[in-house]
Design a protein around this nucleic acid. Structure first.
Length: 403
RNA sequence: GUGGGAUUAGCUCAGUUGGUUAGAGCACUGGUUUGUGGUGCCGGGGGUCGCGGGUUCGAAUCCCGUAUCCCACCCCA
């Protein structure tokens, strides 16, 4: 038997229904905020991710599905969504056009990781990217939108925010932090020693408790922000307060992708295991330039759909449509025709097998139909059809032409 | 990539120190003697016990390998 690849799941009902419901809900809300649907290729040139996500990240360093295609191109399956949207934005010359562009997208992402709860090799994200707005008002708006989506789905969360600074204050801070790490070289874990060289900011969210104790004493970025970053971060917090959005400043919140700056935020759930981040995002004002576009401020977020699935509170399933059956084979042409007509407006389930009354009613319940319609011998002779409203428990026999 | 736990019917799981035709509930399917359901009653189909080796007179049960899943590290949505 051929099996699916490791970490690649099929999605049947009821997960598939939850997935659909999530997309519908998130799409509706994204449109209310003025975002337009965007669709990018799943396969991209590898260089795109090396230059945007960053070679020091694990995503690019060891998790990409990378290969050479038949045209000898170095390509890979997208490990995240932002890079592709930005590439398309620049390719379409929207950076030169100026103004504001807002997009939402969703689809599969691929990372070659060891699967566990909330972590698959093929997983799905719903993402938002906003181009052309430098104001922190847009950052706050995205957070409010995320809150709207999660609230609509009945999902509980905790919001954490931080500022990662910009090119004026981040490099200086990074140097301070590296000096601190060097001074405490003997006390930090092996992972942090590696991070010091590759991506020093990442030490801050190390899970090792002795490292955490040490980093409580480390210099804090939010105490070293430049004037612009400082006032943006302050304004973001008052905007959240004014809109009754609870948050926590987590000075150790860093984003794993190199392109983030200034505002960083993460929504976490304590109900889904170790992979607790359900949505994350932030500002990436430099990324468009890094990818050879004209400097354009940008901010975005992504949600991990599989991680949300079990948290979604689905509306109760309502009885819907018609179940149509016959009690003997001679009624079949009649019910086929009746069903075809009814399908212009309603969901219809046709039972091809002849069954007795009771079993047809059972069948109607099984497919959760609102109405059960049956043509038996009597109805066939009279040119009628028997219809019962299974919710109101009202029944009637009507002319087949009036059905 | 590292560590731990699992794998028996479609699903959730029993299976006694290795012993003869491997069970249950749910699901599926049929009937309940031609007409009232979701909640009655009776029946039926369905398993090379993950896969490959080994030990044994005999393996679902013990050993080795392997695959997949789950959990955690790591990483991240």
């Amino acid at each position: 038997m051929i099996q699916s690849l490791r970490g690649m799941n099929d999605m049947f009902s009821p997960d598939a229904e939850r997935y659909e419901y999530f997309i519908e809900t998130a799409t509706t809300i994204a449109k209310r905020y003025g975002f337009n649907f965007f669709e990018a290729p799943i396969l991209e040139e590898t260089a795109l991710f090396k230059r945007s996500v960053g070679e020091s990240s694990d995503i690019v360093g060891k998790e990409m599905y990378q290969f050479t295609d038949k045209g000898n191109n170095d390509v890979c399956l997208r490990p995240e969504g932002t890079a592709g949207v930005v590439r398309a934005f620049i390719q379409k010359k929207m950076d030169k056009q100026g103004g504001i562009q807002r997009f939402f997208y969703h689809g599969p992402m691929f990372r070659y990781e060891r699967p566990q709860k909330g972590r698959l090799r093929q997983f799905h994200q719903f993402g938002i990217e906003s181009f052309g707005v430098a104001s922190v008002l847009e950052d706050a708006t995205l957070i409010m939108m995320l809150v709207d989506i999660l609230d609509a789905l009945g999902i509980g969360y905790k919001l954490e925010i931080n500022s990662l600074g910009d090119q004026n204050c981040m490099p200086a801070y990074r140097n301070q932090l590296v000096s601190f790490l060097e001074a405490h070289e003997a006390e930090i874990c092996e992972d942090c020693k590696r991070r010091k060289a590759t991506n020093p900011i990442r030490v801050l969210d190390c899970k090792n408790s002795s490292c955490q104790a040490l980093y409580a004493e480390a210099p804090k970025l939010i105490q070293n922000l430049c004037e612009g970053c400082e006032s943006d971060f302050t304004q973001l917090q008052s905007l959240l307060k004014e809109n009754q959005i609870d948050y926590e400043v987590n000075t150790h919140l860093v984003r794993g992708l190199d392109y983030y700056s200034k505002t960083a935020f993460e929504f976490v759930s304590d109900e889904i295991g170790a992979q607790s981040a359900i949505a994350g995002g932030g500002r990436y004002d430099r990324l468009i330039e890094f990818l050879d576009g004209k400097a354009t401020p940008a901010v975005g977020f992504a949600m991990g759909i599989e991680r949300l699935l079990e948290l979604i509170k689905m509306p109760e399933a309502q009885r819907e449509g018609y179940y149509i059956g016959t009690m003997d084979g001679e009624g079949l042409p009649l019910i086929m025709k009746a069903a075809q007509a009814k399908r212009k407006s309603d969901k219809v389930t046709v039972e091809f097998k002849s069954k007795n009354f009771k079993n047809h009613l059972k069948g109607a319940d099984k497919v959760n139909a609102r109405y059960c319609a049956i043509i038996g011998e009597n109805e066939r002779n009279d040119g009628t059809i028997w219809v019962k409203d299974l919710e109101l428990k009202e029944e009637k026999t009507i002319d087949l032409t009036a059905f």
